[in-house]
Design a protein around this nucleic acid. Structure first.
Lengths: 230, 230
DNA sequence: CGAATGCAAGAGCGGTGCTCTCGTTTCGGT
DNA sequence: ACCGAAACGAGAGCACCGCTCTTGCATTCG
């Protein structure tokens, strides 16, 4: 990420940003499958072939939007977190913060957590951005554990072989054991899943007050992770 | 679903089935976004325009595959269920049955529970087929409740206004209250979500033994729904 | 100043969903 | 037995897509 020196480099950086912005706008309107490189080019008044100077393929453009969205949802989670509050309040606040972003950016949310494009595997660079949201949840539980307010593990035991050693290493400075790690994975999965259900219409005619049901889900999952809900 | 009388009607029914079968085959190979009406027509040796006599649009064809897949996953759940076994065994068996179908039909699974096509809303006819799998889970809990082996509700309370009255009516002959209904919705959501994570690669480098982690998830969710796991 | 590079534009390829027309076949009622 | 209506298959065509290649112009660098 060096600063552009020449005028050409500056222009290139600006145009790249413009393309990305236009693509993001169109993504928000027509979704990922409807996003067309040609229409992005049209919006910017350039030939479609010119866009390929900046993004090698449509998938590359989508990957850039993917990273951007991962960072946004991670930032939404981090911004909603007040490290000085009680763990239960923090937990609910972060869940609500993520929901707020998801409701305001449903196409981006679908891009992040929906059906992956068949021939497409998310490049490794997305890993760090993708981790910000789950890590925010993990920090809350870690703080509660450090403060000694974490309840004993409820529910059945988890096979220690089910979770990778890498995962335990990543979370090692938070001193999580296998059980706590597995429950955190499930909490992260739950947050993503319940929002997917709400956004994709799977809860129509099932839940009446989506916000209330979401809060219920958040409290449930927080209690499952040892936080003092109820 | 009347029996075909004339030769024309018989031919029409057969061709419709052939188109559907070819489409299903291609869906399994290239996924929903890669499924092209033209290539289906090519496979059957007919003009692409002829297919439109049988399916008004690509979305219509996809809807037919959607209903077919919903019924298959529902049948997989029902077939895995042995009503004479203990509720805990039934619960785990159904979860595993659904996982088996999902692993063997990942593109169909993605079609059912992945990102919905932007302009597309699932027609109402899919509702009955879509309900078979969740209802199988509900029956197990209902039987356990009837047998008096259901544990008291764990976790935080649910706002009674969160769940629709319709939902309670549907499950009324099982005599579920709001809490039990909400937990069942979450169990159904969990089953779909954890399989989505496994199939879409969100658990790579996180879980080591996917089957073991899935079983852990099933037991966890079963215990949350009052079944006697652990 | 000249060479090398970056760049935008256009044409073109093969693919898509979908529509319209045209000639043929089949069916139902008289 | 006939005749009109309906169903049907095939083909051409429209507008769009991702992507590539070539061409000519502008900028940068030695």
């Amino acid at each position: 990420m060096n600063a552009p020196r020449t005028a050409r480099e500056r222009a290139r950086a600006e145009l790249t940003a413009e393309i990305l912005a236009a693509a993001r706008r169109q993504l928000g309107e027509v979704g990922a499958v409807g996003l067309s490189l040609r229409s992005v080019a049209r919006e910017l008044g350039m030939a479609s072939s010119a866009v390929y100077r900046y993004f090698a393929s449509r998938d590359d453009l989508l990957t850039a939007l993917l990273v951007e969205s991962y960072n946004e949802i991670g930032e939404a989670a981090e911004r909603a977190d007040d490290p000085d509050a009680a763990p239960e309040r923090r937990w609910l606040a972060v869940w609500r913060g993520v929901r707020g972003w998801a409701l305001a950016n449903r196409h981006e949310y679908a891009l992040l957590f929906g059906t992956p494009v068949p021939g497409y595997a998310a490049p490794h660079l997305t890993a760090e951005a993708a981790g910000r949201m789950p890590l925010t949840l993990a920090r809350i539980v870690a703080d509660a554990k450090r403060a000694g307010t974490l309840a004993p593990p409820p529910g059945p035991a988890c096979d220690p072989a089910a979770v990778t050693p890498e995962m335990l290493v990543i979370l090692q400075d938070m001193a999580f054991d296998v059980e706590e790690t597995a429950r955190l994975v499930l909490a992260w999965n739950r947050l993503v899943a319940i929002l997917g259900y709400e956004l994709h219409g799977h809860l129509v005619n099932i839940t009446a007050d989506d916000a209330a049901f979401f809060d219920y889900t958040a409290r449930t999952e927080g209690a499952f992770n040892g936080l003092a809900f109820d």
